[in-house]
Nucleic acid binder design. Structure first.
Lengths: 210, 210
DNA sequence: CACCCGTACTGCAAGTTGCAGTAGACTATA
DNA sequence: TATAGTCTACTGCAACTTGCAGTACGGGTG
């Protein structure tokens, strides 16, 4: 019956520590800034601040804007406290959900075009976010960080994203080249190319960076 | 009321296409082979084959093993058909959930040791799986693939994993070095190091591979 | 004045997870 | 030979999370 503080609750609490937000603003801010570390749905992001109020880790006050009201959430002293305590708890293991990879693993149920299409979708998703983060870094240099004292954290985080995106994009190109060599998706087994690949991997060497 | 075929349902169906499995075997097989493309809980993996039977995409038959029964699930012709149709549908966007990164982004609520600890946890999680996949590639070379005709797919998938793991491990080292330079976690803002980092990222260059 | 888009949410069903619980079979050790 | 521990083989349930539909106000455009 009683809900618990989840990682998502702490993520929202950490945003509230920056400034008070409305539910609507929180959903947008969270989806922009937390998307590649802790992606959460709009729906959840509306619910979390309510939970925080129940716990006493945030307060809510209404502001009238014409005929409608907006609810602003503000962190409390207790909220700041549990946020600080959270930093020394154990983290959950990482979790990568990439359906396009599943399509590669089971590519033998479809055509070469099918699996290449899945790679295209992955590439354009990643490409969009890649471009966005590069542009964001440009804006930081022009003095555009909304919380300038936190720039060192944002930039270190962005470094991860850029590395990740570049890696995925390089692999997609590699995979496309590999699949272009296949006459079909099925029953190829241990070809000579696959064998030399496996040999590299078994020695923990990267086939992408020669 | 009526459940739908989810990506997880297709993933299980694809495993059933390889051979019949019991629920217990499915959970283990799925967690070994799909873990880094489509990680799902043991609980769900027990439920999915039941759903497939309801849909008529699998059949179940009991085998007696002493005083207990094991339920084996087998794919049907309709199951094979929908599996083939699945390959040309759109994929879901990728989703990376990494709590350790959230700890980096909000590192200013704790000590340098706290955030370094979170990076350690990420490193050992990734390290374990990195080692496992390298060993798996070794066993493939020794003729150990359970479905030899699928080796080309498994190895291409493994290439992704190795690249990903190496990238994360390199970034962790980089981040550790960066954090070692910080006198504290808070309010550093745009230091000269951070600025040169941001400058590289804004030009879409990797600071890790000089 | 109608229509569309952005703001600002809520309700609900279904998908998913973690944990506790149940229970038989096999193995090592005292 | 008793018993403890581990592996096999699941089920039930509460809580967490998502996606979608629905509601409704405000501002700008034609």
């Amino acid at each position: 019956m009683p809900p618990r503080m989840t990682t998502s609750s702490y993520a929202v609490l950490a945003l509230l520590d920056l400034q008070p937000w409305t539910g609507y603003q929180l959903t947008h801010q969270a989806q922009r800034s937390l998307r590649y570390a802790w992606p959460k749905s709009e729906r959840l992001l509306y619910s979390e601040p309510k939970k925080l109020v129940e716990f006493g880790f945030a307060t809510v006050h209404q502001e009238d804007n014409g005929n409608r009201t907006r609810k602003f959430y503000t962190i409390t002293e207790e909220g700041r406290q549990v946020l600080n305590e959270w930093t020394s708890t154990r983290t959950q293991p990482p979790r990568l959900e990439i359906e396009a990879l599943l399509r590669v693993l089971f590519a033998d149920h479809g055509s070469r075009e099918d699996v290449l299409g899945a790679l295209d979708e992955l590439g354009s998703d990643i490409g969009e976010h890649h471009q966005a983060i590069v542009e964001l870094m440009g804006s930081y240099l022009d003095g555009g960080h909304p919380f300038p004292q936190r720039t060192h954290l944002s930039v270190l985080f962005a470094t991860f994203q850029i590395e990740m995106f570049k890696t995925i994009e390089r692999w997609i190109e590699f995979a496309r080249d590999e699949i272009d060599e296949w006459p079909t998706t099925q029953d190829l087994g241990m070809t000579s190319r696959t064998e030399s690949l496996a040999r590299l991997l078994a020695q923990d060497q990267s086939p992408l960076n020669p």
